[in-house]
Amino acid sequence: MVSHFKKALLTSAVIAAFIAQGCGTEAPKDTRATDEIAIRQQSMAWTNAAQSHDMDKVLSFYAPDAVALPDGASIALNKDAIRAVWQNFIGNKNVTLSWKTTAVGVAKSSDIAYEYGAYTMDVVGKDGQTSTQTGKYLLVWKKQADGTWKVAVDTDNSDAPPPAPAPPVRTAHHAAAKKHRRHH
């Protein structure tokens, strides 16, 4: 009788474990590591599209409700406005833009993530000389219903401006003030 009871106990434990397993699936899975990889791949595919001056492909990385906050221009609140921002240099073969991810952070719930990094813009002048500008960018990524990550917010700013050509000593203070005025 006791051994029967033991067997019953064992069997019930197995059944209870199955029930508990079903309960466990209620908790959301932590997918942050794979999400970060997916976002880094998206960012790389995006910079490749920009380097090949593929406008449609470039725009395909934005979520339908994306906004862009471009440096030196007003906020772009829809796809047409975002296209116009890109047109200025995607449409110009003398301008090549590329960027590199520095860090990605994903929310535990994997619905929102952010990425920041550094960009480089090469401009070939009329004289054939290439000038390079560098800057920083910040992106907010959102997971879409189909599981892909798209850009919801896109912004950037430039690094230190190139040194002014031979500034007179007395304007040095003014230049320093100018440099910090935009600092927020």
Binding site: L69, P70, G72, V85, N88, Q133, N157, S158
Partner: peptide
């Protein structure tokens, strides 16, 4: 992060630069 709405003032270079170059320079948006 932050940036300005207005484009930066044109470079105070004495010689006029090609317009295309200047407008491209202003578009720093990646």
């Amino acid at each position: 992060i932050n940036n300005t709405d207005a484009p930066p003032p044109p470079a105070p270079a004495p010689a006029a630069k090609p317009a295309a170059h200047n407008s491209a320079k202003r578009r720093k948006h990646h």
